[in-house]
Nucleic acid binder design. Structure first.
Lengths: 320, 320
DNA sequence: TTGAAAGCGCTAACAG
DNA sequence: CTGTTAGCGCTTTCAA
């Protein structure tokens, strides 16, 4: 009994080579497979990580999930996946289920960071928040402000003067930062007038609706900065429906850098989030023996493609 | 001890109302949370389902994953997710991990159905194969042949005569059925010449490469049937790069019906897979007390949008 | 170096 | 109706 445990786990007591071989042979012969449940019961760790995203069918979260699963696998962990559907109640219920399953840690894009953190703290479960996070918990975010500035500046550099924005939901931490970045870039460049702005959810439909609204005005914007790739996809459709050609009559820049942005026609100039890096960091934070609280704000890069009009003459942006 | 178990689980022995209240109060006070691991150890069931897909970042699988997680949650189950990366070895290793975690059942899109089935059979684990499946295991598929026929017929109905196809990988069960459907529709309608065909992976790049190839010939096809939405997205890009307008100069129909097909510009006419139904069926099969082997072949529907040229004059298809 | 035994938190049979 | 007890399959002391 015990000896089998020693050879399967390579410890903690030494085993004579002969015995080891006999055990291995027996394992082979009987098709014995260690029971992870029993192991978890005694050992304390389930070797399982939880991942809660609003919606796995959203390209960005899907890519994130892939990266997290990959990193978790490399660390010998399995991942439990759940969709909060953007709803705080659902998210908390999911967390409760995960806690009952005794996950070792959770990566969460939270709608209710404070409450979630309290729950996890009480359960003594490790966690990493992506995006919105309570101040004292580990979190990984990106430079939303800087990314928005870079994208907007790029648009300005093209010589567009009326640069509108399709923002995210109101009072959303991430959405606000992107909006501020856009705003900042415009005002610091001494834009004559304020750019048009609409709040929309981070969805294709949101981008479509917001796009139609922005394109309907009599002084139509020359460029639109969308707060997410999904919205940009919807905006592309809105422009097509209105018979407005992108980028010739309307330039677009966006935020996320999901694969969909590369596949769109025209391909989207976008602020690229370092998804793999985020996932690797998150998993390391949850699995490392010694992990001091983490408050990462990762750099983003601007990926220049066609939607901004980069096939057209280029003007250097004025200095910030 | 036991009484607590009785009230938490509502059985199997009755508990006096007073005691019940006291137990409930104690639970509330202590913040007691039942340990699922210990439960699983004694009870036998982990209330966990596994899901193995080639790549969660593929829209179709992401939508499937969402539907599976949703159905599983409704049935009180949690889902363990993993990407096989389209590799049989990885898939089997993943399965091994899942088996050690003692999942109650698995939904799998398999690269090695026979081996996987043997493994699962030996472990006594319930499973449902989606797509390729061993003959005696439960499986859920769609009418790939019929769907391809419908899509192709629709293209024929538009009056196109040179209808090419971007197929899936060679020797792939699903891909072959779609190819056969396309072929069947063409020949049974007495097409003068054979349609051009290229094998490509079910990816955006596959569709792009295949599209360029098909569009390069001197007798360019009037319409192309892509074996998957992802390929169609790539094809759309290829057409754009070649300056060919869709649907005016090239009509497109495709297979899957993922959300991306609706968001594309132009929107894609596609064979819609009943994702929710597939997921519900799969989860029921894995959780139902009494589940006789299932060999479902679900009906698909043709969703007509813009890429086929349906804004243009319409010709009734000749009879099949 | 190996074997025996305790116990992880729970459920279910078995007494009371 | 409630309390006691025997495991579920494993890891890890503790003895031999």
């Amino acid at each position: 009994m015990a000896v089998v445990s020693y050879v399967v786990n390579g410890g903690p007591r030494p085993v004579a080579e002969g015995t080891r071989q006999r055990v291995l042979a027996a394992i082979e012969q009987t098709g014995y497979r260690p029971d992870g449940v029993a192991r978890a019961l005694v050992g304390g760790s389930t070797m399982t990580l939880g991942l809660i995203v609003p919606d796995i069918a959203n390209e960005f979260f899907a890519e994130l999930a892939r990266a997290v699963e990959h990193a978790a696998r490399a660390a010998g962990r399995t991942v439990l996946l759940a969709n909060s559907e953007g709803d705080a109640q659902t998210e908390l219920a999911l967390l409760e289920t995960f806690l009952e399953r005794r996950i070792d840690g959770v990566v969460i894009i939270s709608q209710a960071p404070i409450t979630a953190a309290r729950m996890l703290e009480r359960a003594g479960t490790r966690r990493v928040f992506l995006g919105a996070a309570p101040p004292d918990d580990s979190s990984i975010g990106v430079d939303n402000f800087g990314g928005a500035v870079a994208a907007t500046m790029h648009l300005v550099g093209h010589g567009y003067e009326r640069i509108a924005m399709i923002g995210g939901p109101d009072l959303d931490e991430v959405a606000d930062a992107r909006r501020d970045g856009w705003q900042h870039a415009l005002t610091s460049l001494g834009a004559a007038e304020e750019g048009a702005f609409v709040h929309q959810p981070f969805t294709v439909d949101g981008g479509y609706v917001g796009g139609l609204e922005l394109l309907a005005g009599d002084t139509r914007p020359q460029a639109i900065f969308a707060a997410s790739d999904r919205q940009a996809i919807g905006l592309l459709r809105a422009a097509a429906d209105e018979g407005i050609s992108v980028p010739d009559e309307l330039a677009i820049a966006t935020f996320d850098g999901s694969a969909a942005s590369a596949y769109a026609v025209p391909s989207l100039t976008t602020v690229q989030q370092p998804i793999t890096q985020m996932a690797d960091l998150a998993v390391r934070q949850l699995t490392a023996h010694d992990a001091p609280p983490l408050h990462a704000v990762l750099e983003v890069g601007l990926v220049i493609r066609r939607s901004c009009g980069c096939s057209r003459p280029w003007l250097e942006p004025r200095r910030l």
